[in-house]
Design a protein around this nucleic acid. Structure first.
Lengths: 188, 188
DNA sequence: CCACGTCATGTCAACCACTGTCATGAGCGT
DNA sequence: ACGCTCATGACAGTGGTTGACATGACGTGG
């Protein structure tokens, strides 16, 4: 047991989520978050690069999952198929507790700055996927297109999953959105 | 002739571009931009919502172009094809002066905050396109997928166009990237 | 041709996100 | 016991962003 309460990072995350929920993102100051977590503002910024990041930390783990999946796919597998595998792998990582995910999504949906950051995180995921594809010998812009369309599929599936209340899994919605992508890009 | 020099907005834009070029985005304060434009900091924020926006104002015009093109396309045209038309229409709007576009792109490439904003602008463009598609009766997630993949195509084409020095047009690269998209999504 | 409203700008003050720097004191190996 | 490391605190400063109010040229109606 240390000099301080354990898990400062986790406490900051929890405090931030509560406060954003209560007063909105803009209506909450970093000082308030730190206070509720029993820490100082300075410490907040030691754990999170900026105020938004407290809602997005952990996204790097998804990148790792995506990259690993692509790397482990058979070398002969087409780029888009490998990305599809990666998407399913990521879907498994999303907590099944839809309520938590919904609260977080509601906060993000209420604030353009946060949507900007979320898009950025997914773009980073796409970049990681594209890099993994290139290592397999896929040409640069093909890798880019496969990764970006993959992210679009993920977002579409995620939105549907959040909107539903039944037992269908995120993975299931991903399959559905992939089918739609096929249809959409077959007719032009 | 008014009490002030004309075109405050344009002067601010020009001053910002120069300073970002000389000292970088972070190394430039809004006060310095305003000074060079012969205005005050407060006035800067009357013209641009935030410091980044001075590099992105005007993107709304592209949205209009995209929406108009989609609206004017024959109702029977498939969603992805209408988006492709919109992309070509937008490409026509980009100044042919590659040097200006390159300087601006270099500034953005050097700063993650700016890349975040750029993605956001393109996402807004995608949203506008998706809304226009839905008005034609296209189902929501299909509209989303078509628009987002369209933006990916645009980015891929734009990057290539910037990297080249020959006379090929942006529109030409868009056709090329669309072909790649077709190939990528045909094999999974 | 004058009074008045409008509009773009200036002035001033404040808030808060974010950063640099130095201090503190518990745990830990030696 | 010594000194090192590491997470945190304390404090001050920078700069982006906003609100409130003032100013003075321009156009317009009377």
């Amino acid at each position: 047991m240390g000099r301080w309460e354990p898990d400062a990072r986790g406490r900051l995350r929890a405090a931030a989520l509560e406060l954003f929920d209560e007063r909105g993102f803009d209506g909450t100051t970093v000082a308030e978050i730190a206070d509720r977590a029993g820490l100082t503002e300075r410490t907040f910024f030691r754990h999170f690069a900026d105020k938004r990041e407290v809602l997005f930390a952990g996204a790097e783990a998804l990148e790792g999952e995506m990259v690993r999946t692509i790397e482990e796919a058979p070398p002969s597998m087409p780029a888009m198929k490998a990305v599809a595998l990666g998407l399913r792998a990521i879907a498994e990582q999303i907590p099944n507790d839809r309520e938590y995910v919904r609260r977080r999504s509601a906060i993000i949906a209420a604030n353009p700055e946060l949507q900007e950051r979320e898009r950025n995180k997914l773009a980073a995921l796409a970049d990681a996927a594209a890099a993994a594809l290139r290592k397999r010998g896929v040409e640069k812009s093909v890798a880019y297109l496969a990764s970006e369309t993959g992210i679009a599929v993920f977002r579409a599936a995620f939105a549907r999953w959040l909107a539903e209340n039944d037992d269908r899994t995120l993975t299931g919605f991903i399959s559905q959105s992939l089918e739609e992508l096929r249809a959409v890009t077959a007719s032009f």
